[in-house]
Amino acid sequence: MNKTKKICVPLNDIDVAKLNIGDEVLLSGIIYSARDAAHKKLVGLISMGKKLPFDVQGSVIYYVGPSPTKPGEIIGSAGPTTSGRMDVYARELMKMGMKGMIGKGNRSEKIIKSGQKYKCVYFGATGGVGALLAKSIKQSRIIAYEELGPEAIREMIVENFPVIVINDIFGNDLYKEGIKKYKKD
């Protein structure tokens, strides 16, 4: 079992080179939420050469569409959505300097290879534990596309947000390795 690592976001190439599959990581710093609709808009802006609503260099994007915030709370339930739907967009953001993605579920071979090329790590957060994960989000504000509701882009300040490295920058895949270890014929 690998030791828990505490790291600060944004990330650089040196940070991501230290991460291996199975590493349990506590993330602190600023992360950005975006899911399908926001990704479509971001990639649209990139293709038109326009400025993006946040600095992608070194950023970590969290695939999440939180439930509405109750009065007096910071955010609602906020667990990861299925990452595979973002595979068609992720490469363009890696090219812009994105260093980490947080979500759940398998990524395509193409995205795993792109992660190697552009040095971008894929972190898994546990799906279906949004009430628990929300406790690690200390601040949250919508910075773009408010009209998208749960799909708006949020800037979130997190403290010790628990994730595990699923795909490192060396082309490894924890989902495949985990199955190999526990599969019975």
Partner: peptide
């Protein structure tokens, strides 16, 4: 459960 996918797909029973 013999597939080995496990909780959150990280490998397990």
């Amino acid at each position: 459960n013999n597939l080995g996918i496990g909780p959150a797909g990280l490998g397990g029973r």
